[in-house]
């Protein structure tokens, strides 16, 4: 008997889930396959960009980026983002407020409508703006007469980018604000706050991380949008060329040096993507951390049974 008890117990080191666990062999095979897939499909492409960009040395890399047309592409990309992101933040917040804090008929339809730009091909989106503002578009003659240029100019590029990125902020905020409910806002209102104060002091603080999350995603897409912008830009070097369009132009130039330069410009966009992911992960970590802390601090409900 003593021998039985003295025998070292199996599986005592960790919380065993004997009804719902795979054998270590299967578990590690699955992990290996998954990691292999991520390595080949997600890591390798990123590393490759830097490798190719630095093929001709660091000096060539810096020169490619300092090249005037590339530099103006950086400026234009930033300019567009500075216009597009704030517009969509304002839209996202107002749309989320209307959808999350009120009940009305056709709400599901409105949410679908907000989502719609995600489902539409960027190329189709670009074309829709050509239909309005292009030479033969509804407003083509009028724009011509007033010497206004929208298509093959910055305004058109801003418009299509706004279209493509409009759902990001709203989509992040709506579920968050719905989950937060309206009780806190109503409490603020009973305490005499007006609508704007309520929003500023109650709603915004409780959804700021979601908002930030939406902003960085919107920003990443605004800087990286290609299909829609390429249709309305005309890709005039130094004027209507954003970074992704610049990558395209360099890539399709015949020279090998331009090919390397394409990767150099692309590496800037990879850095942008990595920065986006870093901020995103930080935000997620923050939210999870806050939730974990809240759970520790609040007393467990099921312990309150008393008779």
């Amino acid at each position: 008997m003593a021998g039985l008890i003295a025998r070292p117990p199996r599986g005592a080191t960790h919380k065993s889930q004997r009804g719902s666990e795979e054998t270590p062999l299967i578990k590690w095979s699955l992990i290996t396959v998954a990691l292999g897939f991520v390595g080949v499909f997600l890591v390798l492409p990123l590393v490759n960009v830097f490798y190719q960009a630095l093929q001709n040395g660091i000096g060539f890399y810096i020169n490619s980026i300092k090249e005037p047309d590339t530099f103006s592409a950086i400026q234009l990309t930033l300019l567009m983002t500075f216009i597009v992101v704030p517009m969509n933040v304002v839209f996202g917040i107002t749309a989320a407020w209307a959808v999350a804090k009120f009940d009305f008929r056709g709400k599901a339809f409105l949410i679908t409508l907000i989502d719609l730009p995600f489902a539409i091909s960027p190329v189709v989106a670009g074309l829709m703006f050509v239909v309005w503002f292009g030479r033969q578009g509804f407003l083509g003659d009028w724009l011509d007469a007033h010497d206004l240029k929208i298509i093959f100019a910055v305004p058109g590029m801003v418009l299509v980018t706004m279209f493509v990125t409009s759902p990001f902020v709203a989509r992040e905020l709506i579920p968050l604000m719905q989950a937060n409910g309206t009780e806190q806002e109503q409490a603020a209102l009973t305490l005499g706050a007006n609508g704007w104060q309520t929003f500023w002091h109650v709603t915004l603080p409780s959804s700021k991380w979601g908002l930030l999350y939406g902003i960085i995603l919107c920003n990443a897409r605004a800087m990286g949008e290609f299909g829609a912008v390429s249709i309305v830009s005309g890709a005039i070097a130094g004027q209507t060329e954003t970074l992704p369009l610049r990558v395209d132009k360099l890539f399709h130039s015949a020279t090998a040096a331009a090919g390397v330069a394409a990767f150099a410009v692309a590496s800037l966009l990879v850095l942008l993507a990595l920065l986006t992911l870093a901020i995103k992960s930080y935000l997620e970590w923050r939210t999870e951390h806050a939730e974990a802390v809240a759970q520790i601090e609040s007393p467990k409900l099921n312990n309150s049974h008393e008779h």
């Binding site: 998954a34 990691l35 991520v38 080949v40 997600l42 890591v43 390798l44 492409p45 990123l46 490759n48 960009v49 190719q52 995603l217 990443a220 800087m223 990286g224 949008e225 290609f226 299909g227 970074l243 992704p244 369009l245 990558v247 395209d248 890539f251 394409a262 990767f263 692309a266 966009l269 990879v270 942008l272 993507a273 990595l274 986006t276 992911l277 870093a278 995103k280 992960s281």
Partner: peptide
Amino acid sequence: VDALVDVPFALPTAVAGLTLANLFSPNGWL
């Protein structure tokens, strides 16, 4: 790995195409 899953969301598609084309071309890594 969890963070990397979002790479395709964050990476401009032009860059994705560029680097994938290079990786799978006859003298690319793959």
